[in-house]
Amino acid sequence: MICWPDLSLPALLSAVLLALAPSFAQAEPATYADRVAPLLDRNCTVCHGAEKHKAGLRLDSYAAILQGAESGAVVKPGDLKGSEIYRRITLPTHDEDFMPSDGKPPLGSAEVVLLEKWIAAGAPETAAFEAPPLPPVVVVPPAAPDYRSRLAQANELARTLGVQLVPRSQVSTDGLIVRTASAPAQCTDAVLAKLAPVADLIVEAELARTQTTDAGLHAVAAWVNLQRLDLTRTAVTSAGMIALAPLSKLEAINLTSTKVDDQGLAVLQANPALKKIWVFASAATPVP
């Protein structure tokens, strides 16, 4: 294996799961308003809400849920088997009738249990019922500040510098990719320095085959939200790696075909954020 260090994610995860396990089983009081409604809102109301009401069904208010679909009731209080809504969410995921439809991610098992307990308890509108707590929602922090107001600036910068600044996705806090594949030879240390105005927006830098040297990595060090850095076939050396130390979000770095040796590798290994370091055809010894 070339990739180092393999922080065992499964091991970490199972530790987390173990920690959660006891509380998972314990029931706690829940209500329609604080647990059921948000769940339906997250998973169902895009198709069964104010804008679209597929099958004539709305799931965005208590009254609407009990009113059911064109074809009849979907929730029969106290009758799990007779509740169409329950049947739909517990079918095999490939079943045509499975909900949510269209390949949307299925409900988690804890979410299914919540609906089950609610219906079994008579689908109360306000009264509390017993249900296991949901596992804590993992809130993914934004990768970078919102790019929307700065795209024109980024575009102008890219044009003058001869690189591309590409949104990683339409999610405006997903950051920008510095892309150089069309003309890597044009991307010099000076160009990297001139990207300073968008430094905080850059989450990925594809600098393979560019003219980047150790000096240029000082500019890269200012890209505080950088997660992935590809330096394949550049002139960087171990000396340059020190500059990258402050990058606390850097998860993956590719040093294939560079002169970086074990010394540089040791510097990088001190960065707790770094999960993957590729050193194929470099001067460093791959760590198994």
């Binding site: 790019y147 024109a152 044009r159 510098l161 001869g162 690189v163 591309q164 949104p167 069309s182």
Partner: peptide
């Protein structure tokens, strides 16, 4: 430079 995915007017 081909700013392919960014239009002048924004994304």
């Amino acid at each position: 430079s081909a700013p392919h995915l960014l239009a002048d007017t924004g994304a």
